[in-house]
Design a protein around this nucleic acid. Structure first.
Lengths: 222, 222
DNA sequence: CCGTATCCAATAAGATACTG
DNA sequence: CAGTATCTTATTGGATACGG
């Protein structure tokens, strides 16, 4: 006997025509943007999301997925047999939210309190590469990098001043990098030694590659 | 007898090194970003904020201002005599959050559910002009526009492909525009007739000006 | 293992009254 | 006008139980 199945649609909304306010009506609830972040590189299963979003509870994840689906940001899909599992993925419009993550990330990286030693998901570190790339220093440098974190593989293709990143099996790349997401963050942004990662292939190229990423200076702590 | 004055500092945080997650730790609470929005064009008083943020309650506004101040995003300042009133303003770093509003606004403008007829603050509509300006169609068009909404005056200076906007008394401008923020929105984005506004000066220039702003197409409602 | 549903305790938000 | 205090309600998160 389930009464009140209605997703509390008229809930807590800003009644404001401002675009930013409407965005917050859509994705301003706790966890909503982080769920979207974890879907930015393609479909994921409920359990994947739960594992990546440390601290979210199953019921809240269910609620967010329902809400995002109802808003047209997320779609649920059943993979064809033999997988036959259900996955969640962003709609095209949902995927267009990437600049939101970039503006948030760039701004927050200047926070005096930002603690880069906290746990970080594979998706987050991949997204940060696109965010923090110093476009003016690429020149005509090109490099294809395969990243492997546990079972997740990504390929980043630096070329023509762009850095598209896909989650896909690492095929033919210039250099393969394996390790923990946090270790990659430490190497790229913290100047930690390459020995924190397992690197195969064009190590010198990768060395040059990591020189293309900067953390912005901290804002005046005053 | 006030116990527990402590701002609940260890409260509800994402323990995540991702920049976007940290941004949400800083400004992800309800109303926080909208308070910042209202401060984007300079200092405001408590009552101004309360009036612009329809639906916020006094205690929540107090809490947000305290939190944002503690995070180094907002500063409180006492204006010198004879005003001698207290105002809130963004720090330099706080003001750098503008791209967050732009990315949120651009993305949400494509929402099938965005309702542009809701009330809108003067700050929001001014900010939206900077967000929605079609840079590739400006050419070498230049125009200085004064906007007046009640007691608030803004000057927008289109020049060299840029559109800086300041809240300042309207001085020497090419055209003066007066009316409700919602009416300006209707004219600029909804194709409503200029007669909804009071316009003095270079009306033809203003007509051309409003042609430079586009709402992006709605995302597929499917 | 993949979710969904339910219950509970902590906390954040909203409404309102109140004080300097 | 500028906030504070108090009370009520809604949301969150954690635990856990349950069906596929």
């Amino acid at each position: 006997m389930k009464l009140e199945k209605i997703t509390r649609e008229g809930g807590r909304r800003y009644h404001d025509a401002c675009g930013a306010a409407h965005a917050l009506d859509l994705v301003g609830e706790r966890w909503a943007l982080l769920v979207m972040r974890e879907l930015m590189y393609g479909p994921r299963r409920f359990g994947d999301l739960r594992a990546a979003l440390v601290g979210i509870s199953a019921n809240v994840l269910t609620q967010r997925l329902e809400g995002l689906e109802e808003s047209g940001i997320v779609r649920r899909r059943k993979l064809p047999p033999p997988a036959s599992v259900q996955v969640y993925e962003l709609t095209d419009w949902g995927a267009e939210a990437e600049p939101i993550f970039q503006s948030l990330g760039r701004w927050a990286a200047r926070s005096p309190r930002h603690d880069p030693t906290l746990p970080i998901s594979a998706i987050s570190i991949m997204m940060s590469l696109r965010t923090m790339l110093a476009h003016d220093r690429i020149g005509d440098f090109a490099l294809t990098v395969g990243f492997r974190f546990g079972d997740d593989e990504f390929v980043a293709r630096l070329k023509d001043g762009e850095l598209p990143i896909e989650r896909e099996p690492i095929g033919d790349v210039d250099v393969r990098v394996e390790g923990e997401p946090a270790a990659l963050a430490a190497v790229v942004y913290g100047g930690a030694p390459l020995s924190m990662l397992t690197i195969a292939g064009d190590v010198a190229g990768f060395q040059r590659f990591i020189g293309l990423f900067d953390l912005p200076p901290k804002a005046n702590a005053a």
